[in-house]
Each structure stands twice: as C-alpha cells, then as structure tokens.
Simulated assay, not measured.
Amino acid sequence: MSGTTPELPIVVRDALMPKAQRLVVNRRGSTVWEVESRRGRYAVKVGRPIEATADWPAQPWTALAPAREGAVLHRLGRDDIAYGVWKHGTWNFQQWRNGPDLYRLWEPCRKQDSPVEPHVSAALGCVEALAELHAKGWAHGDVQPAHFIIGPERTHLIDLALAGGGHVPGWYDFPFRGCLVHYEAPEIARSVLDTGEAEPTPEADVYALGASLLISATGWRAVEYPDDAPRPVQREAVANGSRRPVKVPGELGTLISAMLSHAPEDRPTVYEVGKALS
C-alpha cells in the first residue's frame, strides 16, 4: 500500500459508522485506526499479507493476525470485540485504550543525568496486567513496552495476536515464529533459529517484561548486538546469553536482573515479581 492512503474496509465502516477517524499505524502488513463512533471509541486493526522482497521472505500470517487476536480476546471473555474478513486479509475492532505506553511514560528517566527514577507503581501495573493474562491460562508471546498502555485507572496489555494457551480456529491460526528480538527470551530465540518456530510461555513473557522494563527505564536493550544486525545474528546473541548488566537502582533493578535470567526455571513468576514490587 506504499504511496496510497489506506481506507477502512467497508464492513468495518458499516458496523461502526465513524464520526471521526485517525490513522495511527500504517506499515507493511498492518494498519491501525482510532475510530470514534456513536458506539464509542475503537481501535481498528486491518491485516494484509506482506509480499517477499530481495531482503525478506513473504509473511502471509500478517493477514490473519487481526482475526486471530479477535479470537483470543473472545476466548478471554471480552465482549467489546468484533472481527472478520476483508478482501486482503482480516480485521478486528476493540475498545480504544487511553494513556501513554510504558516507554513513553518513562521517557524522563532516560534523559542524561535525570534525577527521575522509574515509577514502581507503573511497573506493578504492567506486572498485574500480565499476571491477569497468565491466570487465564494464556501467554502473550509479544510482550514489549508499546503493548502496555498505562491508563488512568489500570494498565492494559494489548496486541494479543501471537498469544498462546487456548484453542484458536484453524483457518486463521498460524505458527509462532518469535517476536521482536529485543524482548525475545533465549529459549525462544534458540527454538526459532533451530526449527523456525517456538511456543509462547509464561516464562518467556517474564523475560520480555524484564527487557521491557529495562529499555524503558534506561534506553538500553537487554542484549548487545549491532543495531543493523540481521535477525538471525540478533537471535544468536540472545540465545547465547550475551546480556548487558542491569543498571536500574533499587529493588526494581534486582527484579529485572532475575527476570532476565538465561534459564527459564531461574526466573521468578510474574506473581512473584508482583509480590516483590508490592
């Protein structure tokens, strides 16, 4: 869709009858709008396949991701979700969540010589949101700072298209092939390198939460590799455990270091992290 302005699928426009809409994300394979309608404010996600390039293979799963997320949210008991098919892939709409994401919220902490320290209450809100998902038998699979929305009353964990733990109808299901490598646990990275696939787990979510807290607080990734390194090189660094030291003060730093342990069994559970922060 390069060079063109995307439009909401007709079926979504008919369902929501938008009074106003704002394009939030427009990238290969995924478009997101904020839509205001008489029914309320919604996030509308539209997926389409990514075609192969000289540098990257084709990614057909991106067309299915919105419907897969819709199915997961439905399984989790959400009643503010609708999803379906359009001519290029699938779509969903769900309640819009107000608030900054974790990385944006902690921006003052990352400024050089800043006296501002990360808010433990914000970290606890992220932990509670993830713990709620784990308590329902699901692992998120794509934990990252942008997926924690710090609302006025609670923190929301969004973007569950890669979540695992329950039944997803086969026609829009697809294998889990890892996530953004900055937040990928070593065992996930190794599995993707060796087999091309992996399984989301609560332990890997805890690692990803630790990496999210670290980069949001300091601006540094958990693992060191060149910014322009190919993805397999990044994953090899993660799988081999070449981790940076955690330079976050206090109890939060100690917890982050434990969450980033190389072996899954050495990491605290999300419930243990929450108890420590409380």
Rank of each mutant, 00 (worst) to 15 (best):
K87I: 10
H88A: 15
N92C: 14
F93H: 12
F93R: 07
Q94G: 10
Q94K: 05
Q95C: 12
R97N: 13
R97K: 05
R97G: 08
R97P: 00
N98Q: 12
P100M: 07
R104K: 11
L105F: 09
E107L: 11
K111E: 15
D113F: 09
S114N: 07
S114F: 03
P115R: 05
V116Q: 13
V116N: 05
E117R: 15
H119M: 13
V120N: 11
V120L: 14
S121W: 03
A122D: 15
A122K: 12
G125Y: 02
C126G: 09
A129N: 03
A129D: 12
H134N: 10
H134T: 07
K136W: 05
K136R: 15
G137Q: 12
W138S: 06
A139V: 01
A139R: 04
H140A: 12
V143L: 04
P145V: 05
A146P: 04
I149M: 13
I150E: 08
G151F: 01
P152Q: 13
E153V: 10
R154F: 03
H156Y: 15
L157N: 09
I158R: 04
I158G: 03
I158V: 15
D159P: 02
D159Q: 09
D159M: 04
D159T: 06
D159R: 02
L160T: 04
A163Y: 01
G166A: 13
G166S: 07
H167Y: 14
H167Q: 10
H167D: 15
G170F: 06
Y172M: 06
D173P: 01
F174A: 08
G178W: 00
G178L: 08
C179D: 07
L180Y: 05
V181L: 11
H182G: 10
H182R: 15
Y183N: 01
A185Y: 03
A185H: 02
P186T: 10
E187P: 00
I188G: 04
I188D: 08
S191N: 06
L193E: 04
T195R: 15
T195L: 14
G196I: 06
E197W: 03
E197K: 07
E197D: 12
A198R: 01
A198Q: 01
A198L: 06
E199Y: 01
P200E: 01
P200K: 01
P200D: 03
E203A: 15
A204G: 08
D205K: 06
V206I: 14
Y207D: 04
